[in-house]
Amino acid sequence: MPIRSPRGRAAAYRAIWQWPLRSPVRLAVTVVVLGALVFGLVHLAGQVGGTTGGGGPGATQGDRWDAGGSGVSATPTPTMLPPVPELTPEAQPLDQAPPQALEVARVWTSAWVNHPEGTTSQQWLAGLRPYTTDEFLGVLAGVDPVNIPANRVTGPATPTRVAEKSVEVDVPTDALRLTILVVDTDAGWKVSRYDRA
């Protein structure tokens, strides 16, 4: 029997929208169903909008107007960036090592081994500062000079790898051999790393 009075329609509508509120399970089911409906509509609208041709409101981003008057022509849009070649410094012969870089490595090592008894970390760092990059000074700030076993440089700075803007240098000391990376910065050649060889 059809509902003929406005009061009867209002009661029917009220029964429909109150149904989800009668239990938490009904509410959860309603939310999931509505979410699926919204997702489906959005996905469907994206599918339809992506395949529309022509220059009107439904035109895709890949379409462009041809100034020659021939209408709209679709141009492919790149979907991914081209591969980037791995950046490796081009090696140069060892005899091409800049003398300034070798001198900085030698002087830096002399300052590194200079830690007479009673030298504070700040005093030690002050000796290294003119020859060290700012970033590496932050790393060296955690070094206690008491733990440095060497006391003097025992040989010349020898290049082991040479590139256009960096030189790897070995410097011997009385306790160990250091491998030092010297880089060309705006302020000249500076040490940016060292390892115990």
Rank of each mutant, 00 (worst) to 15 (best):
M1E: 09
R4E: 12
S5D: 11
G8A: 15
G8K: 12
G8F: 13
A11D: 07
R14P: 01
I16H: 05
W17M: 13
W19I: 09
R22F: 01
V25I: 11
V29F: 02
V33K: 05
G35N: 04
V38I: 12
V38N: 00
V38S: 03
G40H: 07
G40F: 05
V42T: 02
A45R: 14
Q47F: 05
Q47G: 10
V48N: 06
V48M: 12
G54T: 01
G56M: 10
A59P: 00
D66F: 04
A67E: 05
G68Q: 07
S70I: 06
G71Q: 03
A74H: 06
T75R: 12
M80V: 14
E86R: 15
L87I: 15
A91D: 12
L94M: 10
D95W: 05
Q100S: 14
Q100R: 14
A105L: 08
V107E: 00
W108N: 01
S110M: 10
Q123T: 03
W124V: 03
A126V: 03
G127P: 06
Y131I: 07
T132M: 11
E135D: 11
F136G: 06
L137N: 02
G138R: 12
A141Y: 00
G142M: 11
D144K: 14
N147E: 13
P149F: 06
P149K: 11
N151W: 02
R152H: 10
T154D: 00
G155V: 05
G155H: 04
G155D: 01
P156A: 15
T160M: 09
R161I: 07
R161N: 12
A163W: 06
K165R: 14
K165D: 14
K165E: 12
S166W: 06
V167D: 00
V171Q: 00
P172A: 10
T173R: 00
D174G: 06
R177N: 05
L178G: 02
T179V: 13
L181Y: 05
L181M: 13
L181P: 00
V183D: 04
G188I: 12
W189K: 09
K190A: 12
K190C: 03
R196C: 07
A197V: 03
